[in-house]
Write a protein that binds this DNA or RNA. Structure first.
Lengths: 108, 108
DNA sequence: ACTAACCATAACCATACGGTTATGGTTTAA
DNA sequence: TTAAACCATAACCGTATGGTTATGGTTAGT
């Protein structure tokens, strides 16, 4: 249920192009596929496929507006990965303190 | 330099069997390949290959003792992933804060 | 009404990946 | 010393993956 989505998140973020796209949307906000294509430096269909992988992991949302589709990052979807890190990073306390803070603030 | 290793970490943890192996070592401590093979439910060569991927990402260390090799988790190697999460998780609470602001202004 | 822009999907290709069995090198046990 | 246990590597196989070009459906601009 939740584990299945964690798997999708881990898998989605394994690819550097996909991470890069996610980062760009997180930083710059909503972007059209066109803009993301210029940014990513691969073909438009490649970007569309990457976006659909991110979508399966719920890492992005989208909004159609006329002929263009705007995608946006949904950083909340990082929660499952963050939870995993929290558990296994707990075996090594020090550096995860700040992550704990961030996670605390992410709670609804 | 650091980014390259982050990539290895993300990639290594994308596979569920590899995550499972890492989790087992984190929980139970050092394990021989034999023990990990029993645990993982795949062939011994498969485990060896997974371990070498984890090794490339510096997520495990190993120690030979006679004919057996003991592997252990190195949770410190999760740092690069945690750092990434901190950055992009931060966009979440930024947005959250901004939402709080908006809601604040909406009050009559 | 035509044309161009935007995007998603299909079809295809090469390579990476996760699995297997086979094999060989060390090291322990008999 | 022979046999068995442990592990890594090699060779192989099917499928997933990330990329491409081609195409078609909407929507916008002229």
């Amino acid at each position: 249920m939740k584990q299945a989505n964690a798997d999708n998140v881990f898998r989605a973020l394994a690819d550097p192009t996909r991470r890069s796209l996610f980062e760009e949307m997180a930083r710059q906000g909503e972007q059209t596929v066109h803009a993301l294509t210029r940014y990513a430096g691969v073909s438009q269909p490649a970007v569309s496929k990457h976006l659909s992988v991110l979508k399966r992991a719920k890492l992005v949302g989208h909004r159609r507006e006329g002929r263009e589709t705007h995608y946006r990052a949904r950083p909340e979807a990082l929660a499952s990965m963050a939870d995993w890190l929290k558990v296994y990073g707990a075996f090594w306390h020090d550096r995860f303190d700040r992550l704990e803070e961030v996670l605390e603030r992410m709670k609804p």
